[in-house]
Design a protein around this nucleic acid. Structure first.
Lengths: 372, 372
DNA sequence: CTGTAAACTTGAAACGTTTCATGTTGTCTA
DNA sequence: TAGACAACATGAAACGTTTCAAGTTTACAG
């Protein structure tokens, strides 16, 4: 029974015209099992079958499949047999023997955010281009789930792990599984980390706002309790303010703060009663997510963006219904390149020593919340 | 060499204080291999190791691991040994023996659309809850890639396939791999299909617009050349118009038409020169994607939504920066339930005959493009 | 204390590959 | 034509599980 697909099962019922109940009697089940063997060739053909069909040995078939040189005549016979039997390698047998499985595991909080989903998408595409399968694990940022997924991954002898977690799982990663970390900053500094150049991005945002006329630039952001490269955006902001001799004006709370009220409160506190506008004329928001909320709050307070306040976010989140349009003006992370780097490093075919930190350049893109 | 992580490799170089070049001489490589064996215990412990450690037989260890009853004292010994050796099942060996791998393969066009990414997310969560791993395949809707992914999946002996494709791959699916299809309509009608109740959704949209005062309701949509349940939205629209005695007003083009110009053209053609507004006062757009573009076009023509024209889309696409807010008023597909159904049916633990079509109910949600 | 049934344990065989020492064939030289 | 070497083919062993027939222990009734 167990190996019959439902479709096939259904066909069989029709064919033999018996009821479901009768069907379950052992006698009939046996009959079915036998039929199955003769009708469909039950389990897929193996290399042995191919070898027999082609009249060569197991080793020769293996050589053909793995592209090892084989006499032309043998190769042809084997290839014909493979086609005839519709043979497919059993990658679990291969995995067992080789202890290489051709899978990469991605541990990511969620897909319900365009940044994560796009990153996951790009990583999948890169994995595909490198003939790897992608195992997707959405941890929701829950430490226990992160660990559980990790141990699943090691159990499955995955060939590499790409992680974007909210807890330090590096201690539990076996030495022999390649492991790269996106953005996050672990205790074990030897683990290769990949991120955007957030620091430069922060500087870029402030400079852009300055260039566009802002002289009073606020920072709005929420920091995770778990350290990562994204924290550098704030550092970039501070550094640029120093450079440009601007007075910082900052909302920087832990990320368990309710975002909307905090932003509203911060903005209201900074409204100049004389002008009715805010004391700042530019805002650098730590993420596009924050920037979108900032914009909504500003609009609800009848402060016009970008006329009264210009706004730059971070991430490069694109409108889902328009290729290449952004929800807000933003510093774009190079997602495709980040994905490529992650996959390349986790595969690391060259077997070189990997840099412990790889930063990729960001760029600015206008999204209507700035006057450019 | 090959099994050393880079981290470990690096440590080793430091330890032994030799140069990279020297390192590659065979002699030294051998030395390393030997060291590795003694230093880290190279490959993970196997059941045999556990059995030896616990002083029981292989079969007993297997029984403990698989929750088969075993004498209490043996169980304890085995569990201790497992902990001590940090044993983990090798799921490739298990997969080989059982020809069950614990994986579900999802073939989906992309993650760069909130509908797909949310669906993928929910399916992953369901897979996790059923102790399955999710292999993600983004085909970009390219037929060849769909087939390639499919054959990868069968080669990997996946336990089930959930597909949302733009070509009929059903013929290539082996009989013995459970297969369910999301939305799409294949030639082979025995394959279980899962979708939202698009027909009712279409009716719902029209009724809602009618309820809100519209008496002239247009349909705007683009149909794939590959048939699916989503085509029923249009049927629902037509049916509701008949019911309510409304005159249909339709833009329904193939989906390779450039969307933006088509919509602009359609709308402009339907502007009443007297009022400056459109002849229709309500629009049902086939997807939220279309609806968003419709809104942008309307706004660019200075037609106000929802004051002059009310607009309902389809899918239930939420704003990425606000839980439970929609980009447009919409008919929501029950993504979580759809995902649950897909996984449940592809696993089909009860081994029942599966319905060939499962439709799940949709519901309306306001998103600011209607006057409610 | 014995006999018997029930409960548990044992280890060889099998799953479908890859590997590799050994065997076979073919080719070229002298 | 023999000898030597290269090229290729062969199939048993191994990878780490599960399974299952056969063996051993335990519990309990008489």
């Amino acid at each position: 029974m167990c190996n019959l697909s439902n479709y096939y099962y259904f066909k069989f019922l029709v064919l033999v015209n018996i009821t479901y109940e009768t069907f379950h009697r052992n006698v009939i089940i046996d009959a079915v099992d036998k039929m199955e063997v003769s009708m469909t060739q039950k389990s897929s053909p193996t290399m042995k079958d191919v070898a027999r069909e082609a009249g060569v040995s197991l080793g020769t078939v293996s050589n053909v499949i793995n592209g090892i040189t084989v006499r032309e005549s043998s190769r042809r016979k084997v290839e014909e047999a493979i086609k005839k039997l519709n043979y497919q390698v059993n990658s679990y047998a291969r995995g067992l023997k080789m202890s290489r499985t051709g899978t990469i595991t991605l541990i990511i909080p969620t897909l319900n955010h365009p940044f994560f989903s796009e990153l996951a998408y790009e990583i999948e595409q890169q994995a595909y281009m490198n003939s790897r399968k992608l195992i997707l694990c959405c941890s929701n940022g829950i430490a226990e789930k992160e660990l559980e997924y990790l141990s699943l991954a090691t159990q499955n002898k995955t060939d590499g792990i790409i992680a974007l977690t909210y807890s330090d799982i590096s201690r539990q990663v076996p030495d022999n599984i390649p492991f790269v970390v996106f953005d996050r900053y672990f205790e074990n500094q030897q683990i290769p980390r990949i991120a955007s150049d957030n620091y430069t991005g922060g500087i870029m945002a402030v400079n852009k706002l300055y260039e566009l006329g802002c002289r009073n630039i606020a920072f709005i952001g929420f920091h995770s309790s778990f350290p990562g490269e994204a924290d550098k955006r704030f550092d970039g902001y501070m550094s640029a303010c120093r450079q440009l001799k601007l007075t910082p004006c900052i909302l920087h709370e832990p990320d368990d703060t309710p975002v909307d009220p905090a932003i509203r409160n911060f903005i209201e506190k900074n409204i100049d009663p004389k002008t009715g506008s805010t004391v700042f004329d530019g805002i650098f928001a730590n993420t596009d997510y924050d920037a979108c909320i900032v914009r909504e709050v500003l609009e609800s307070l009848n402060i016009r963006v970008p006329e009264q306040v210009q706004l730059i976010g971070f991430d490069g989140t694109k409108k889902f219904y328009a290729e290449n349009e952004y929800y807000v003006s933003t510093i774009c992370q190079p997602l495709k390149e980040l994905a490529r780097k992650c996959v390349e490093m986790v595969i690391n075919e060259s077997e070189e020593i990997l840099p412990s930190l790889t930063l990729l350049p960001v760029h600015y893109a206008s999204g209507g919340t700035t006057r450019d």
